Structure formats: C-alpha cells, structure tokens
Simulated assay, not measured.
Amino acid sequence: MEVSAHADTESTDVGVTTGFLARKLGVSPTTLRSWDRRYGLGPAVRPDGRHRRWSHGDVEMVQEMCRLTASGVPPAEAARAAKEHARTADTAAPGPTPGPAPTAAPAPADEHSPAARARAAVSATAQVSHSGTGLPLGDVRQECRGLARAAVRLDAAAVQRQLTAVLEAYGPAVAWEEVMMPTLRAVGRKWETSGDRYVEVEHLLSWHIAATLRHSYVRASSSAARPDSSPVLLACLPGEQHTLPIEALTAVLAERGVPALMLGGAVPAEALLASVRRTGPSAVVLWSQSRSTASLALARHVAATRWGMRGARTRSAVLLCGPGWGRSGEAGLLRPTGLRDALRMLPAR
C-alpha cells in the first residue's frame, strides 16, 4: 500500500499506520506486531473494523524501544523500560506540546530512570550467550548485542551510531577486537549455517565498519605523524580481498601517530615489491585470510628486498597476519596472533 503524500504531516490525533511507522523506524511491520504480541507495545486505541493507528505517545514508546535495543538492552527489559517511560510521560505536568523524538543519542539518563535500570540489567547478564538476534554471539560485551540487533534489522542508522559510539568510547583497538570482530564473526557463522541467509546483514555490517575505521584513520592522520618517519606498509596478498583487519590496524597506527601506507586488497606482487623499494617502510604487514592466498615465496622476497642509500641499505620487518598463514612460523618473518601482538612486533619508533 502506498503512503499518501501528506503522510509525514499526519496529525498525532489521527495516528499513523503500522506500515508507515515501520518505515519511519527502519524496522519491519512484523517486528512491530511481534513487540505488540510479546510485550504489549501496541497502539493504546484500536478502532473496531479499522487499521490500527499509532498515536504520538505510541510512537515515542516504540522509538524508546528501538533506542534501548540498539544500545544492547535485551528486548524484554527494553519493553518494560519503554512502557514505564510512556506512563511517566503521560502523567507528567502539562506544558508545551513536545516535538518529535530526536533521532540523535539522548543525554545520559538519570541513574534511577527506567532506561538506566534496563542498562544495568544488561550489565548484570552480560555473560548470557543468548543475544535475541539468532546470532551465535557467545560471551561478549553488551555493545556486540546492540550492534547485532541493529544489523539484523538492517537499521543502517543505528549500526552507524553504535559503531561511532564504540570507537569514540574505547578507541579503534578495543572497538575492533571486542565489538566489531566478534559481531562480524557471529554473522559469518550464521551465514555459513543458514543456507546463505544473512548475506545482506554481513555486507551492511562490513561496509559500516570499513567506513567507521577509515573515518577514524582520516581524523587521526590529519594531525599525524612525523614526516621523517618510515611508514608501516599494509597490503593484502594477490587474490585476497579481506581488508577489514588491516584497516583496523591502520586506524590504530594513525591514532598512535605512526605513519601508515595502506595499499588495500589484492595487491599484485610487482606493485607490492615496487612500493617497498620506493617508500622504505619500517615494516610490511601482509594479510592472508585463506591458505589459497598465502604465499611464503612472496613474503620471503619482500623480506629480502633492500632499500635505502648505497652503503646503508636495509630491510623491512615483515609481519605475516591472518589465518591463511597457518600457525607455523618462518625464519626471518614475524607471525603475530592478533592486532595487539602485531603492534608489539612493529619496530619501536
């Protein structure tokens, strides 16, 4: 059913339809009906023989539900808090008619408010493995649960708000290792076991993570590093397209004032070797996601490449990053187990 041209200006006395509200919030009509059936988050007035209409107060209640679940609050706790929020608003002293609920993150709630109590409940149950999303998250931070819920709903705005908030709160290293990567892995596992469902969720989440990490890099590098420092060169091997892990490392290096030269995915061998000779990097990070792209011959060639002035030529440290390299080490090559390990192995500046 098409929404009429004046739907956006429809009076709260008349109310809005379920379909319109679903589009406004970025959720499906099925989700709204499920919340109504399970938690009683439905229209207060239901005209007989007519489509349900959601009043201004109903809309604000469901907006609060969306905000809380996107921040990691379990749906049942969020529903209780949203209904109490609505009751509090109904009994508040009369005053000027409020405008629409803001879409930006609200000011921190009082510690005794319903929202604050709901968040406290999440903290108390942070080790519960059930995420409410159908994703196998396991024991993770509550931010993973909020991010997963937003991604499964394909709520791009909420995904971006969650990622931005996590990055600003914890920095790129913790954000990647403890929120972004666990959520991506859970989506990937669900994709593999559900007959190619959730592909769209993985693509949405990956795109927003990449955008967030690149924004972090650009913001940090604008004040960046010493121009006389040798960069860390980061590249995926030929045929390898999985760039997110080294994008995370690039963002962390920028945050720490370390110059980075990020070449991205599937870098041809000749281009990689030419870049090493031209830039003289202090270290070269080679990412391989699968054994089919890992090339020890190329890694050895990079490690043997000398650069610099004649009589003072030197080599770059080479880090083999990613599961494609397997667990075994290689003489003369460094094999970090993760982002923090790679940071420890990079030459001191």
Rank of each mutant, 00 (worst) to 15 (best):
D8N: 15
S11G: 08
T18Y: 00
G40S: 09
L41T: 09
L41K: 06
R46H: 07
R50V: 09
V62H: 04
Q63D: 05
M65Q: 13
C66K: 07
L68Q: 07
A70W: 09
S71H: 08
P75T: 14
E77H: 13
A78Q: 08
A79R: 12
R80L: 14
E84N: 01
E84I: 04
P94D: 12
P94T: 06
P96I: 07
P98R: 14
P102G: 10
A104S: 13
A104M: 09
A105P: 04
A107Y: 06
E111A: 14
E111P: 09
S113V: 04
P114F: 01
P114T: 00
A116I: 01
Q127N: 09
V128E: 13
V128Q: 11
S129W: 09
G138N: 02
E143F: 02
R153M: 14
R161D: 11
R161K: 09
L163Q: 10
L167I: 04
A175C: 11
W176L: 06
E177T: 14
E177D: 15
M180H: 09
M180I: 15
P182D: 04
T183K: 01
L184W: 02
D196F: 14
R197Y: 01
H203M: 00
S206D: 00
S206M: 03
S206W: 01
A211I: 06
L213I: 04
H215Y: 05
A220W: 03
P227G: 02
L234M: 15
A235N: 08
C236M: 12
Q241C: 07
H242E: 04
H242S: 03
T243I: 11
P245G: 10
A248F: 02
V252E: 02
L253R: 02
A254I: 03
R256A: 11
L261V: 05
G264L: 12
S275A: 15
R277D: 07
T279C: 10
P281A: 08
A283N: 10
T293Y: 03
H301S: 15
G308S: 02
A312L: 01
S316I: 05
V318M: 11
L319A: 05
L320I: 03
C321I: 00
G324V: 12
W325H: 14
G326C: 08
R327A: 13
S328N: 11
G329A: 13
L334Y: 04
P336F: 06
G338F: 12
A342G: 07
L343M: 09
M345E: 12
A348I: 06
